[in-house]
């Protein structure tokens, strides 16, 4: 994974995992790699890897089962919620950049439709 090194890496790895959960690549109830494995997978510092799980836990996306490891929670609607949140974040930054180009909402909508039908 290529990082934007001016943004905290724990956020970037967290988002990458959330993307995999939202898309179903990682399923609810699935065991996640250990902190050490995560560090090696992404070539990140082990402390950063531990922080990724801390944050995902706080957000209710994963849980640590004592002695067993970290798992994606099996709550109904969690996957949907993560997908919705990520979609909104992406849309917000997309709109921000389109507006910075001087485009109106109407123009943005038109371009979106055209691109979708291509």
């Amino acid at each position: 994974m290529n990082f934007d090194t001016s943004i905290p890496i724990y956020l970037q790895v967290g988002n990458d995992l959330k993307g995999k959960i939202a898309s179903g690549q990682i399923q609810p109830g699935e065991k996640l790699p250990s902190g050490r494995e995560l560090a090696q997978q992404y070539q990140i510092n082990p402390n950063t890897a531990a922080r990724v799980y801390q944050v995902l836990e706080q957000e209710g996306i994963c849980e640590t089962r004592r002695g067993l490891g970290t798992y994606v929670v099996e709550e109904i609607g969690m996957q949907q919620k993560v997908r919705e949140e990520m979609a909104r974040d992406l849309t917000r930054s997309f709109l921000e950049r389109m507006r910075a180009l001087g485009l109106s909402g109407e123009e943005i909508g038109k371009i979106l439709k055209e691109e979708e039908n291509r």
């Binding site: 990082f3 090194t5 890496i9 050490r36 560090a39 090696q40 992404y42 070539q43 990140i44 510092n45 082990p46 402390n47 950063t48």
Partner: peptide
Amino acid sequence: MNSILETSSPDNAVVISSHLVEEIESAVN
């Protein structure tokens, strides 16, 4: 780098000297 990350633990410290910052940016804290 993988061998370093594998070895790193709460019980030890690793110091990597480099004049190439980008190479170690994501692995060090």
